[in-house]
Amino acid sequence: MLTGKQKRFLRSKANQLKPIFQVGKTGVNENMIEQISEALEKRELIKVSILQNCMEDKNTVAEKLSAGAEAEVAQIIGNNIVLYKESQENKHIQLP
């Protein structure tokens, strides 16, 4: 579980990131969760965009992605979700 200070730090890091995944009409599926897990292992911090044609609520999408990828939701802003997961091999981010 992330503290408030850690979430603030991650939000500042994620500010300049571009979304690398998009959740569309089909919603969250196993293949997407697997790819997000791999991306989190490489990058530790990613941004996911939710398209307007997505039928699911953004909080539901964030919950499914974080549970499936075993990641923490650092932020939900607008239609973007910021996910963080500490990498085992490629550690880049030092949390305060």
Rank of each mutant, 00 (worst) to 15 (best):
Met1Lys: 12
Leu2Asp: 08
Lys5Gln: 15
Gln6Cys: 09
Gln6Val: 10
Arg11Gly: 08
Lys13Trp: 02
Lys13Tyr: 06
Ala14Val: 03
Ala14Asp: 02
Asn15Thr: 06
Leu17Asp: 03
Leu17Lys: 05
Leu17Gln: 04
Lys18Glu: 14
Lys18Cys: 04
Ile20Asp: 05
Gln22Leu: 04
Gln22Lys: 06
Val23Trp: 01
Gly24Asp: 00
Thr26Asn: 00
Val28Ile: 06
Asn29Lys: 03
Glu30Tyr: 02
Glu30Arg: 06
Met32Cys: 05
Ile33Arg: 05
Glu34Phe: 04
Ile36Asn: 05
Glu38Phe: 08
Glu41Phe: 04
Lys42Ser: 13
Lys42Tyr: 05
Arg43Lys: 13
Ile46Trp: 02
Lys47Ala: 04
Lys47Gln: 07
Gln52Cys: 01
Cys54His: 00
Cys54Ser: 02
Glu56Lys: 04
Asp57Leu: 08
Glu63Thr: 07
Glu63Ser: 12
Lys64Ile: 10
Glu70Asn: 15
Gln75Met: 11
Gln75Phe: 03
Ile76Trp: 07
Ile76Arg: 08
Asn79Val: 05
Val82Ala: 10
Tyr84Ser: 08
Glu86Asp: 13
Ser87Gln: 12
Ser87Pro: 14
Gln88Tyr: 07
Glu89Leu: 13
Asn90Pro: 06
Gln94Tyr: 10
Gln94Gly: 12
Gln94Pro: 13
Leu95Val: 04
